[in-house]
């Protein structure tokens, strides 16, 4: 395939991507294109490669072969400035990973000030607005240790939004949360999605998927087994593997 032969380019384009951890083929021939403003939910059993998949998008993991093009830039290409590209990609971790020595506001403004070089006053104004947007206007000066899990995750989302990214990646953002805190985080994610953010979300939250996702991708053993609209996937799964998976997560 020549470069000029590419018909259309999504915001995130996996083309025949493979990755190994030692002899384990963790990503098998992944081909997936995420359009601008699209929300794709990735689900699958533990160890299926879904976290690895989205960690490749911002280069937290490197791919072995195939092409991965993000925002028009090919990863692993010497011409691609990864540091620069990462400023366009927000990443929300399962374990929040807030900076414990910084307040909520400082967590949100750190990268905008030092990476985006936005003047401090301006970054702080934007930071306060973002914290207000995620419902934490009263917590700007709190340290992460003083916040609940749900509050920490909302700060983490605000921290990503502070960089004004084009893409947001979520790696099981609600898996580490107590049940009563899940909805407050999902509500924020729904709001972000509704503003037109391009998102890849690793989650088993079907309510979220049905509400905002255009597509659900089901992975097993490193490969994409099935993909479709949330309705198709949850109501009429096509493969035995996805039916077995859904029966497990839906049982309770």
């Amino acid at each position: 395939m020549t470069k000029t032969g590419l018909t259309k380019t999504g915001m995130i384009d996996f083309r025949g991507v493979n990755k190994w951890f030692g002899s384990l083929n963790v990503l098998k021939d992944i081909t997936l294109s995420v359009e601008p403003r699209e929300v794709v939910v990735v689900c699958g059993p533990s160890g299926s490669g879904k976290s690895t998949l989205i960690r490749c998008v911002n280069g937290l993991e490197t791919i072995k072969d195939g092409d991965l093009v993000v925002d028009g830039q090919r990863l692993g290409d010497p011409a691609t400035n990864m540091t620069q590209l990462r400023t366009e990609i927000g990443f929300v971790f399962q374990a929040f990973n807030l900076y414990p020595h910084k307040t909520a506001l400082e967590n949100v403004t750190l990268a905008p000030i030092h990476v985006r070089k936005i003047p401090r006053a301006e970054a702080e104004k934007a930071g306060r607005e973002l914290l207000a947007k995620v419902g934490l206007a009263d917590k700007v000066n709190a340290y992460p240790a003083q916040l609940s899990g749900g509050q920490q995750q909302r700060v983490a989302i605000a921290r990503c939004l502070g960089m004004r990214p084009k893409i947001m990646l979520f790696d099981e953002p609600t898996s580490a949360l107590d049940p009563e805190m899940i909805s407050e985080v999902l509500d924020v994610m729904v709001a972000v999605a509704e503003e037109g953010m391009t998102m890849m979300v690793v989650t088993h939250e079907m309510g979220f998927a049905r509400k905002v996702a255009q597509r659900v991708v089901f992975m097993d053993a490193g490969a994409i087994v099935e993909s479709g609209t949330p309705d198709e996937f949850f109501s009429h799964p096509k493969t035995d593997r996805s039916r077995a998976f859904l029966s497990k997560i839906l049982r309770h």
Partner: peptide
Amino acid sequence: GQVEASVASGMTYVQRMRLVVLPQ
């Protein structure tokens, strides 16, 4: 995770050492 969070936000090696790792 601290290093990953700072890498993901586009910080350089020097920035993440100075702003995130060393203070802690």
